[in-house]
Design a protein around this nucleic acid. Structure first.
Lengths: 145, 145
DNA sequence: CAGACAACTGCAATTTAATTGCATATACTA
DNA sequence: TAGTATATGCAATTAAATTGCAGTTGTCTG
């Protein structure tokens, strides 16, 4: 559970205050881990139209409110950006951890190390994901949820 | 253009020799960069049924013949594994480079650095992708292809 | 070299994900 | 509180991926 104030976030980014937008932020901040688009849709499907959900998620990503992490299946997962993110630059260059047992995606407090690119290549951003078993699945090897 | 012998590769992995399988390997080894599923389908669509293509790609991935790289859109891209890959363990822990101008994906000759996981988390594999502009797009900033 | 079996392919149908256009509803501003 | 720009919901469409099954093709053995 991450402490955020949806209304403030919307105001900061010049976004209109709608109940759908607030609900999405609430839902995403419910858990420490990232949440996938299908999961979100399952949880919010009765309150928010699926198209609206897509649009809200895109807006949030553009504004730097959420960052999107692709899992091994190409499914989009979303997590709240740290406060240092902005519309112009994502500072989400931390390592992600994708549990292959419970499929949860964690944002680790570990920065991606600098890696030297070959001549001619210029890297603007980096993305690193570790695959393995998470804390919970290591101690209690039962599929949660 | 990567020098491979499709027939040998199939034999090594106990896969039946079919013309579809050979064609897929030929096509993927045509270029140095990874190729996306949609591109492959465009090139092979008249020779190979799309379902067959999906199945061949899955088989190759399982066997460690190809490795799959997801791009920022969640599209699967495929590249030939280095010879040290095997059915049981992928040794593809090199950095990938995803050009945001021409969208090509390169397998760099750069290994992913070791990163310490938080207590309780065990990482089995890692994946790192750099996003930016590649050699060609930096020198000749025109969209190729 | 032929026959038999297992494996592979292609087709049709289905499921799921994502996008677009448009009419209606809603938030913010003056 | 009226007007306007923006957001939402619905319907329809496009694209990606999967499943089941019938028919074909490789490979092994006799």
């Amino acid at each position: 559970m991450i402490k955020i104030n949806p209304v403030d976030i919307l105001k900061e980014h010049d976004l209109k205050h709608t109940k759908q937008r607030v609900r999405v932020l609430e839902e995403i901040s419910m858990d420490e881990v990232a949440i996938s688009q299908p999961e979100l849709e399952k949880k919010l499907g009765k309150e928010i139209d699926r198209v609206t959900l897509y649009r809200i998620l895109n807006t949030y990503e553009d504004k730097g409110i959420l960052h999107r992490i692709m899992d091994m299946n190409g499914t989009a997962n979303y997590a709240i950006c740290s406060s240092s993110c902005s519309e112009h630059h994502h500072h989400d260059e931390h390592v992600h951890f994708n549990c292959t047992s419970c499929f949860k995606i964690y944002c680790l407090e570990v920065r991606i190390p600098k890696i030297k690119m070959p001549d001619g290549f210029t890297a603007k951003t980096m993305s690193t994901t570790a695959y393995g078993t998470c804390e919970k699945c290591n101690t209690n090897p039962v599929k949660p949820d």
